[in-house]
Design a protein around this nucleic acid. Structure first.
Ligand SMILES: [Mn+2]
Ligand SMILES: [Mn+2]
Ligand SMILES: [Zn+2]
Ligand SMILES: [Zn+2]
Lengths: 139, 139
DNA sequence: CTTTTTATGCAACAAATTTGCAAATATTAA
DNA sequence: TTAATATTTGCAAATTTGTTGCATAAAAAG
């Protein structure tokens, strides 16, 4: 169970102002326990302006609460950062999984391996696995 | 040097109808020897309708001539498939590199490692490295 | 409580992508 | 080669996605 006070604390600790909208949105993201897109927010928060949702995603991302996950669908998807991220340090080393059946993108508890490319300076690595997720596989 | 007859042969072998536009576009992609976006095509082919360019990218991709590379910028980028792909089989196992300086995305000659996730069925893997590319690094 | 800073809503804009349909072109069959 | 058939193209219009400016509301700081 996620409490209001906890949601508020998280916003504060990321230097984000506390507003009703942000509390509701963050609570929704925490509860959902999966990655979200602008579409998900639009569906859930009919009362909030679309522009506000975009801006919320942007400030949450800038302040290390969310990270943007690359996808070839054209729809940006965001995942919760693990508690190590803030506005200054955004560091992610986990891999992602996109399910071909249900479409959800998950952050997995598995780290990316190190890649070395001669002549290139590698600063970040994204790994997106595609296939059938845990809840969609038929045994 | 890429010859007209060769371009035509490639289109045919991927079950794509031969049209002037497609020949020009494919020749351009082959010559460019790097990944391309709709923007690149629009800049190069002023005489072709934007809609046609979109449709060309789509059919080239569906028929295994191009592959779409996931990116968090929202702009789709496409790379040439290696000769093993066709409409039925789209198999890619190379990694990609996106340069933070010049913005180009490259297909690298390095294969993705195998990932295993308990309970999940992994069918494809995308790896996108980010950093500074060969031509942008300062020695 | 007052001032300052930031967030929100609204309208308008801009860019990216899609759709329908008629005309043009390519392929196939005769 | 020509006629029939299938697919592609261009154009106009719609849709979807994301951005910007600005006045107002709300939050944080003093
Ligand atoms: Mn993640
Ligand atoms: Mn590639
Ligand atoms: Zn699934
Ligand atoms: Zn570069």
């Amino acid at each position: 169970m996620i409490r209001y006070s906890e949601v508020k604390r998280i916003l504060k600790s990321h230097n984000l102002r506390i507003t009703d909208g942000r509390i509701d949105i963050l609570e929704f993201i925490l509860r959902a326990n999966k990655t979200i897109s602008i579409k998900d927010l639009e569906k859930e928060f009919k009362s909030l302006d679309r522009v506000t949702l975009y801006r919320t995603l942007t400030s949450f991302t800038e302040n290390g609460l969310l990270h943007k996950i690359p996808d070839d669908s054209g729809h940006a998807t965001y995942g919760l950062c693990h508690n190590t991220c803030d506005s200054k340090n955004h560091y992610h080393d986990h891999i992602h999984f996109k399910c071909n059946e249900c479409g959800t993108i998950e952050c997995l508890d598995q780290n990316v391996p190190a890649f070395k490319v001669p002549g290139y300076l590698v600063k970040a690595t994204d790994v997106i696995l595609k296939g059938v997720c845990k809840t969609c596989v038929i045994y």
